[in-house]
Design a protein around this nucleic acid. Structure first.
Lengths: 334, 334
DNA sequence: ACTACCCGCGAAACCGCTTTCACGGATTCA
DNA sequence: TGAATCCGTGAAAGCGGTTTCGCGGGTAGT
C-alpha cells in the first residue's frame, strides 16, 4: 500500500537495456548517444512516468535549479504591488526554464546575515535582488561567481546585470507633458533620493526644464519618500510657498494621490488650476478622482527581463543591462 | 586561487577526532553523544566555519527544507498587495525555522500540471496554497501525506489545515455599523461568489439584517467580483433601482472605491446621504476621499499563521484551523 | 596491412550527509 | 560471578543522479 516508489535510473536502465550513464546522457541532452538507444531510453522513461529527482541531481551536478529572489527589506516593502508583480514575472520566466524561485524577504544589510549565508552556501544557482539598499553584498557575491541580477540601477557601476525602467525618460516626458499643456511653474516631489530611480526621475525633470529654456524656481524641488503622507505634506508646503504653482510631477502615484487630496481639500481645480502627473500607473492611478495622468512602467516586463537576464547568465550567453521604456498615460489630471 | 573548498564532515570528523556519524549526530541535535565529544565537534565546526550542505542533507534524509507557496492564478493575482503581504509573512516564519519559501505562481487546475508534478515529486516538504480555485489537487496531495496549509476556507470540509480571516464576523460588523448609524436600506456588493470569503461576508451581512428584524429588499444584494469596475457598475444600478439606499457594504475596498466614485459623480454626499463600508483596510482605504471606513484584516498575521501551521505539521504537533478576528476601522465614509 | 584516432558506451567513483547495524565495554540483575 | 541489558560509537551502506576514465570496434591515414 506504500506509494509506488518512483523509478530511478537503475530501473530505467534495466528496462531500456542500457547503462545508467547512458540514461543520464539521454536525459541531459547529450547528443553522442545512438538515436536508437536514445529512443529506447525515452520509451522507458515515458512508460514508467519517470521524473528526475532534482535533489540527487543537484548533489551530483552542483546545480540546484533554484534562483533566489531577494527583497532587501522587512515585510512592508512587499506590500507594494510593484514587487509582487515583478516577482511573478520573474517566477514565470524561471519556471519556463525549469528553475524554481526561492523567495527571501529580509533586510540584507551585512555580509553575514542569514540571507548572505544562504546565498553563499551554494544552495541557489543565482540571485535576483530587489530594492537593494547597498552594493556591498553584491560585490562579495560577485566574487564568488554567483550569477546576479539587480532590478533597479545599481549605485556603483560594477559590471552586474541589471534591469530598470527608463526613469530619466519617464521624468522627462512627464515634465514635458505638463509644460506643453501650458504649465509654467512645474514642481517635482521626488522619491527617496537615496534610490537611483528617484534620482533619475529628477534628472529627467531637470532636463525637461533645461530644454524649455527656463530654470525651476527655488523650492520647486521637494524631496519626498514615495509615501502618501509625503505627497500631502509637500503639496501643502508648495502651495503655501508658491501659490502660482501650476504643475506637479510626483515621482510615484501614491504621492500624486496625496497631492490630489490636498488640492481637492483646498478647492483647487485639477487640472484647470494645477496639473498633476504621477509615475507607475498603478491601480490607484486609475481609480483616483480625477483619474491620474501618469508614466506607466511595465512591471511584468521588468520581472521577465530580470528572469531572462538570469537565464542568459546561466547559459553563459552575453547579456547587457535592460532599460525598459515608459509610456505617458494621459487621463484627467493633466 | 580556487575558492577555499567548503569543509565536509570528513574534515570536521578528523579535526575533532571522531567519526562522521558522530558529527552528524551532534549537528542534528542527537543528545546521545558524550558532552565532551560534542563540544569537540562544535569547536571544529566553529573553527572551520562549517555550514551544512543542504542539498546533500536533503538527498540523504529526504527532507529538502523547502516549502512551496502556490498561488493559483496567473500573474494578475499577485499584483494584489494582499498576496504579497501574506507571502512575506509566511516567508518570515519559515525562515525563522530554517525553511525556505519556493514561490510558484501558476494556474493550478489539473492534477498533472507542472506545479502538481513538482509538488508530488518530493522536492518540497510541504505546500501552502493561496487563492485556491478547486480542492481537487489538495485531496490528491493529501493522500501522498504532504503537509498542506490553505489560506482561505476550503470548499470541501476535508481535514486540511487552513487559516482564514473571520469573514463572517467582518461582514456582520460592517453591516451592523451601517445600521447602527441610522442606515435603513443597506446594500451589499459581494465579491466573487465562487470564493468562500465572499460567501461568508455575505452571510455576515444577512445575519446582521436578521438581527435587525428586517429583511434586505430584493435587489440589495449585488453579486460583484472584487473589481473597481464591478463596484462602479453595481453602485450605478443600485442607485437607479433603489434611490433610497443609504448604506453600502462592499466586500473589498476596491469595490467600495468604485462606489465612492459613482456617488461623487452623482453628487451624493458620503456619509450624509449614503454610508459606505469596505473590507480589507488596504492602502486605498486610507487614501480615498472621503477616507474609507472598512473592516481591517491582519494580513501579515494571516501569513504568519499559515507558516506556523506548516511548522506544526512538520513537527508532528497538533494543530487546528486558525480564524483571525477582524477590526472595524472607522474613518469618514460611514 | 599496420598504426593512429575517434566514437559510443559501460563500469565505477563520486557528490556530502544520514542512518542502520553491530561491537565493545560498562551496568544491572539474579 | 555469570548472563542479560544498555549505551555510546564507528564502519559502512545507502540516497539517486553525474562524470570521468578507459575499453573495444570502426574509420582514416600511410
Amino acid at each position: 500500500m506504500a506509494a509506488p516508489a518512483r523509478p530511478t535510473y537503475a530501473v530505467i536502465a534495466k528496462t531500456a537495456g542500457v547503462s545508467e550513464a547512458t540514461v543520464s546522457r539521454v536525459l541531459n541532452g547529450d547528443d553522442s548517444v545512438h538515436p536508437e538507444r536514445a529512443r529506447r531510453v525515452q520509451e522507458a522513461v515515458d512508460k514508467l512516468g519517470y521524473k528526475k529527482n532534482r535533489v540527487a541531481s543537484a548533489l551530483a551536478s552542483g546545480r540546484t535549479g533554484l534562483i533566489a529572489v531577494v527583497i532587501d527589506d522587512d515585510l512592508s516593502v512587499f506590500a507594494d504591488p510593484f514587487y509582487g508583480t515583478v516577482t511573478s514575472g520573474v517566477s514565470r520566466i524561471l519556471m519556463e526554464n525549469g528553475l524554481q524561485t526561492v523567495l527571501m524577504v529580509s533586510p540584507v544589510g551585512s555580509l553575514d546575515g542569514s540571507v548572505a549565508h544562504y546565498l553563499k552556501s551554494g544552495e541557489v544557482d543565482g540571485a535576483i535582488f530587489f530594492a537593494l539598499h547597498s552594493d556591498i553584498l553584491i560585490n562579495s557575491l560577485k566574487k564568488l561567481g554567483l550569477p546576479l541580477v539587480i532590478t533597479g540601477t545599481p549605485h556603483s557601476s560594477s559590471d552586474v546585470a541589471f534591469v530598470d525602467t527608463d526613469n530619466f525618460g519617464g521624468g522627462h516626458s512627464a515634465t514635458k507633458h505638463l509644460m506643453s499643456n501650458g504649465a509654467k511653474k512645474v514642481a517635482i516631489i521626488t522619491g527617496d533620493i537615496g534610490t537611483t530611480a528617484a534620482k533619475q526621475r529628477l534628472d529627467g525633470y531637470l532636463q525637461a526644464y533645461r530644454e524649455s529654456g527656463h530654470v525651476p524656481a527655488k523650492g520647486l524641488i521637494c524631496e519626498g519618500d514615495y509615501s502618501f503622507e509625503a505627497g500631502k505634506a509637500h503639496c501643502e508646503k508648495l502651495l503655501d510657498a508658491h501659490p502660482d504653482v501650476d504643475g506637479i510631477f510626483a515621482s510615484n502615484d501614491l504621492m500624486a494621490l496625496g497631492a490630489l487630496t490636498v488640492l481637492r481639500d483646498r478647492g483647487i481645480a485639477v487640472p484647470e488650476q494645477v496639473r498633476v502627473v504621477g509615475f507607475d500607473d498603478s491601480l490607484i492611478a486609475q481609480t483616483s478622482a480625477p483619474a491620474l495622468t501618469t508614466i506607466r512602467q511595465d512591471v511584468v516586463a521588468l520581472g521577465e527581463a530580470a528572469g531572462s537576464l538570469m537565464i542568459a547568465q546561466l547559459n553563459g550567453q552575453d547579456w547587457e543591462p535592460v532599460i525598459l521604456p515608459t509610456e505617458l498615460v494621459i487621463r484627467a489630471s493633466a
